[in-house]
Design a protein around this nucleic acid. Structure first.
Lengths: 344, 344
DNA sequence: TGTTAGCACTCCAGGCGCTCGAGTGCTAAA
DNA sequence: TTTAGCACTCGAGCGCCTGGAGTGCTAACA
């Protein structure tokens, strides 16, 4: 384990390095008020810390730089999450007091605001709506064997699905179908839709609807909704280029490219089950992020995780500030959704 | 005006420069088969072309580089749009033969595919749906003075608006409102909605609905739909970083940043009224694009422009290929939408 | 035993000078 | 009008040097 003095030095090196983006030398550290030792002493400790793998040296006569292991130790043991600065807090609060009707709008807004506050790239996933309950189903025939199913949830979110069936159904049948659907299906979570429909509706429909197969086919397509991919909002991707570690375009390009593949984001995104998850460097699930850190958290609706917020940047990141902001935001977003769902 | 030989040389310089991304010298040009002159002759012509402003020289002993004026002349007078290469054509066609239900999906797909084909950044605007006709309106009350209006258009596109009114309307009134709406409003283009409603509905509603003010308020909010901002899809923004002119991060960052401001894109985007519009360098409406070229075209539905496709890259761009691809795509997309609207 | 001053050593960034080669403009000949 | 020849220019690239920041080690000190 590290001695308190080593911890103090490691901590100071990381915080300085995060600000300066340049290797930190013993002289510079000795100028800190809370470090009362001479450069020579600090050099000894730094040599030990390097031997243990918490620091590295770009070359012999340079200062020290935190290693991945160093950051990890810092995040796990040294970081004390304090209060966010007042200004940031006020600013964040104001985002959630605007009148907003659509949940997607809030997700987009959060991505933008956080990217401004952190000067990093922000990824917002979701919210998934498949745990919400159905309020109403509407089926609008378009002719030519097509129709649009409209599903309105609990919280006022609207999903639409285009459905096809092999032949024209009778207008009567469609009407019956919609009525039966609404009878049976209101209050069922979207993710349970398929199961409920097959369990409760099949027999009923067989009695009342003439073209039974068609009706089933329609149901089948309606049930595609829960299988939708998650929506992704990305804010401030261009902030990345301002970071000195990405001044070399070759470093930045693969990462921006990764972010453009919207569908695969949820494959590598850390889905922090509770609290905040920090993935440093090679801890990330894809090689493109081996020099990046992703800090992520979850927001909920009625206790159920419905989406995620993440901040992506170089490993040299202001962990403290970003974690404060994320923690606040996930909570505020959770509250917002709850308020939204109950009032809407 | 330029002599034929000058045109030949300018043309060759541009095409070589587009490929090599390096200043073109007289020796290299003399190696072209179609140029039968000695380097010395070419040098003389190049000096003239430079004097006239079609070429520039990075420094005294370097080759020549096309100026903005040079590109402009090339695009206006020298470019003969030939046939697209077979491979690209087949590939593009395949995009439009997939079964696709949602128009947005096709826009996103187009952005991605074109960015792969051109290795540039692609911007797809729209499609705007406000010239489409209404097929059906549905009003779903959420309680607490809120409701969701669902508007289904002609082509199967679904728009939803959240509306609020000051007090609870009677269930009867809502029903009446919906019935009256559907009677009067079907077949009206979304953009005409407000006018039609005020003209035809006010008196009718005054007779049939008890809380007249509330009904009007609802109508008012429903009419927000046409004022929605255009949807924007961007593909391959990271391609930009692969271009040598953006190897300096400082050049790329403001442009990527510009692309992130979705709302303002339509302010500077060239809305080619017909055919293809090419904006070279400073011709663009924003300074950030002073070293970029935007090539844009329009796609239509039923003769009416509903959206735009643009390719954004450095002024050193393969104008020929990009214009071929854009021209083909806009046509294919127009056909696709027409097919979609009539069948859907 | 832990801390610190002193010192020799290392190594990079950056400035300087040099050369090489690609490319030019000009002149004179074909 | 075209072209060969030639002197000239200029930047890229390489090697060299120097200054300074930072280190590790040793010896003295508390």
């Amino acid at each position: 384990m590290l001695t308190p003095r080593q911890q103090l030095i490691l901590s100071a090196i990381i915080e300085d390095y995060v600000r300066m983006a340049e290797p930190i030398g013993s002289r510079a550290l000795a100028k800190h008020e809370e470090i009362q030792y001479s450069p020579a002493t600090i050099r000894n400790e730094m040599a030990d810390l390097e031997e243990m793998g918490y620091l590295t040296q770009p070359h012999t006569s340079a200062g020290r730089v935190p290693s991945q292991k160093g950051y990890r130790f810092y995040v796990d043991n040294l970081l004390r999450l304090g209060q966010m600065d007042r200004e940031t807090g006020e600013f964040l609060k104001s985002v959630f007091t605007k009148r907003i009707d659509e949940v997607e709008q809030v997700a987009r807004e959060v991505a933008n605001v956080l990217s401004m506050l952190t000067k990093q790239t922000v990824i917002v996933l979701g919210p998934k709506t498949d745990t919400e309950k159905l309020r109403k189903i509407e089926l609008i025939p378009l002719g030519g064997g097509r129709a649009i199913a409209i599903l309105v949830t609990n919280s006022g979110h609207v999903e639409t699905v285009h459905v096809r069936f092999s032949s024209e159904m009778e207008a009567d049948d469609v009407e019956t179908l919609v009525r039966v659907l609404n009878d049976k299906v209101v209050g069922v979570p979207i993710s349970e839709l398929r199961r409920t429909l097959y369990a409760e509706l099949a027999s009923e429909l067989r009695r009342t609807v003439e073209r039974f197969e068609d009706a089933i086919a329609v149901l089948n397509e309606v049930c595609q909704v829960p299988e939708r991919e998650e929506t992704v909002f990305i804010g401030g991707a261009s902030n990345m280029l301002a970071q000195p570690e990405f001044h070399d375009v070759g470093k930045a390009q693969p990462i921006l490219s990764l972010l453009e593949q919207n569908e695969s984001i949820s494959n590598w995104f850390p889905k922090a089950e509770d609290g905040i998850e920090v993935r440093i460097g090679a801890e990330n699930a894809v090689v493109e992020l081996k020099d990046c850190t992703v800090i992520a958290t979850t927001y909920r609706l009625g206790g159920v995780p419905v989406g995620h917020i993440g901040v992506l940047g170089p490993t040299r990141m202001d962990y403290n500030r970003v974690m404060q902001i994320l923690s606040f935001t996930s909570q505020a977003l959770t509250e917002f959704l709850t308020r939204f769902a109950s009032s809407g």
